[in-house]
Design a protein around this nucleic acid. Structure first.
Length: 416
RNA sequence: CGGGGUGUGGUGCAAUGGUAGCAUGAGUCUUUUGGGAAGAUUUGAUCCGAGUUCGAAUCUCGGCACCCCGACCA
């Protein structure tokens, strides 16, 4: 893609009133646009990143059998009244409600009610179980205090995933599979997630599990051990415990960001909504459920929050909008510039033919300094420079965003 | 929802109650070109509503918005 054709521009100055790194860098680089506190539009390159993240999540969900759907966002009031969540709890405190001349509806903050209602019309026997369903869509939640860029929004993109089982044992097996799938998702996104025991709020009395990433801007505090055998959220942590019950080392305390929260739902939704199946003995029983969320747009924010330097974003290869950023640096001499541009064009065409994503900074009026600064800000993992210097040395210059090493190589030697 | 802070061109900043200025961006022209180039020229702003005053960006009241701390949080 040619940079001159992307309608967004970078900003030199930090936006006034933003303290959070992800909010500053994503806006300056033109990935997102703030509409209101906690409400952002995703611009072309922002959407590319979001799609990369979504695809990683989608692949891992499909790998454990998840079937993708896209449910309605408008929520029928009657459905939420069946679980007694319209007038209290999440329905009262979290759900946006909209009235027209005929009816009142909610904007989906989560989809247990809707999905349970859908599946009950399809599931009749134990032979129809188990299965799991996910979707990636915009959720709406009234946040008392939206903050920190993409980390806590009123409108945000979430992957919500639900599983349905005939027995608790089967649910537990799947729950473990989902945990492993989530670890893979975060690893592929370049993040080290710590599985942490937490409270399920009014959802469940049992511990639930959160996937936490250590970060100073996090809202949570966790006590954990590097051995990986122990981590608990402060809200459930017994302060008398000081050593890891698994390896015996001192526990560490850190602020962290919650990327995901997974729950055992039991029959909390299937019973009131009437989602029953007939078991092997011909007895009717409520379906056992689990639910598993990942904040997709929050994940994008967390990646920026944990991967940046004073010049800008450093995207991991797996989620970067492009694999490389091609910068022709002109010399001011007509003949040479023609040669430089020809070379840059041929590199661009070559990479495109190979299917390598490339952002081509073809802006003729930008100075070298500005192109470098923009490249650092946007944060594409590999920078390729074509200039008089590189022509003289018969190659192209490459530099990885997360390193200071610069080297001249032949185009054929490029690996991304 | 409680507390604190802030609202001025697209962006970042200034302006004792008295001509809204600077930088940057954007447009045009010339010269430049390896880390946010130079000159010339053009463009563009006081969050909204009341009040005080001869006169309000500035003072008062009300509203709205944004940021931060806390409470809350599937």
């Amino acid at each position: 893609m040619k940079q001159s054709q992307i309608f967004t521009k970078t900003q030199k100055e930090n936006p006034k009133d933003e303290k959070s790194i992800n909010a500053i860098l994503l806006q300056r680089a033109g990935f997102i646009y703030k509409e209101m506190a906690g409400v952002y539009s995703f611009l072309p390159m922002g959407l590319m990143v979001l799609n990369k993240i979504s695809n990683i999540v989608r692949e891992e969900m499909q790998a454990i059998g998840g079937q993708e759907v896209d449910m309605a966002i408008l929520q029928p009031k009657a459905l939420w009244q069946k679980t007694d969540r319209w007038d209290k709890g999440i329905g009262l405190e979290v759900m946006y409600k909209v009235k027209d001349e005929q009816m009142e509806v909610g904007l989906g903050p989560t989809h247990e009610e809707m999905l349970t209602d859908i599946i009950k019309n399809h599931i009749e026997s134990f032979e129809d179980l188990p299965f799991s369903v996910f979707q990636i869509q915009t959720k709406f939640r009234k946040e008392a205090r939206a903050k920190s860029g993409l980390l806590r929004g009123r409108e945000f993109i979430m992957k919500d995933f639900y599983s349905f089982h005939a027995s608790t044992d089967d649910f537990k097996d799947f729950y473990e599979k989902a945990k492993q799938a989530y670890l893979k998702v975060f690893e592929r996104c370049g993040l080290k997630a710590i599985i942490t025991e937490a409270s399920g709020g009014d959802f469940t009395k049992d511990f639930t599990h959160e996937f936490q990433v250590i970060s100073e801007v996090g809202e949570d505090t966790i006590y954990y051990c590097d051995c990986g055998g122990f981590s608990q959220n402060e809200e459930v942590f017994d302060k008398k415990v000081t050593k890891c019950p698994v390896c015996g080392n001192e526990l560490k305390k850190a602020k962290s960001i919650e990327l995901s929260h997974i729950f055992s739902l039991g029959t909390k939704y299937s019973e009131p909504l009437g989602a029953f199946f007939t078991d092997k003995n011909g007895v009717k029983a409520p379906i056992i459920m689990g639910c598993y969320g990942i904040g997709i747009s929050r994940l994008m924010g967390v990646i920026v929050e944990t991967s940046n330097d004073s010049h800008g974003i450093i995207w991991p290869k797996t989620v970067a909008p492009f694999a490389c950023h091609l910068l022709p640096i002109l010399s001011g001499k007509e003949e040479q510039d023609k040669e430089i541009l020809e070379k840059a064009n041929s590199v661009y065409n070559d990479l495109q033919k190979k299917g390598i994503g490339v952002l081509y900074d073809d802006r003729s009026k930008k100075s070298a300094g500005e192109k470098f600064a923009d490249a650092d800000l946007i944060g594409i993992p590999m920078r390729i420079v074509v200039s008089q210097k590189t022509l003289e040395q018969g190659g192209i210059e490459i530099k990885e965003r997360n390193s200071d090493n610069v080297k001249i190589i032949k185009l054929e030697e490029l690996h991304v």
